[in-house]
């Protein structure tokens, strides 16, 4: 993928939140959900902000102690995975929508972003089910 490629969340099927440095992304089209840890969640926030892949790599290089080539390779790989899973789509925008996530000023330890895939969303939603049903009286 080219450095100037911009991605955006596939809002028709996908909802996501970043909580405590972890991005949780659910794909309602197939009931799968995904998590990404610290660097991955930063990538996701930059996807939401409309950054190009090249701009993401620049931002990450400023925040983490890794070389540009490693970071760009990882960004490219994770972007491809996000596309393959239907979590993002390519956009026609030519600039970010906003500034995106801010760093804490220091340079953190870099860990290659990973996209973890889970298929137990329906099981989790069935935890702690509601009390009585729609309207049935007891037998």
């Amino acid at each position: 993928m080219k450095p100037e490629t911009r991605l955006g969340p596939n809002t028709a099927d996908v909802a996501a939140k970043v909580i405590d440095g972890e991005a949780i992304i659910m794909n309602l089209a197939n009931g799968l959900y995904f998590s990404m840890d610290e660097v991955g969640s930063a990538v996701w926030e930059m996807v939401e902000a409309g950054f190009s892949l090249g701009e993401m790599s620049d931002r990450l290089q400023a925040r983490y102690d890794a070389d540009r080539e490693t970071i760009a390779g990882d960004v490219n790989r994770i972007a491809r995975q996000l596309l393959d899973e239907g979590l993002v789509v390519e956009t026609e925008a030519d600039a970010p929508l906003h500034d995106g996530p801010g760093g804490d000023g220091g340079r953190g330890t870099y860990a290659a972003p990973t996209l973890n895939r889970y298929d137990d969303m329906a099981d989790l939603l069935a935890l702690d089910p509601p009390m009585p049903g729609l309207g049935a009286l007891p037998e």
Binding site: A15, A16, K17, I19, I24, M26, L28, Y33, M121, L124, L125, L127, D128
Partner: peptide, 16 residues
Amino acid sequence: TRLRRQTLFWDMEQDR
């Protein structure tokens, strides 16, 4: 951990 994840799903879906 599992219940928090469930909570997050519901929060996202309620927002959506």
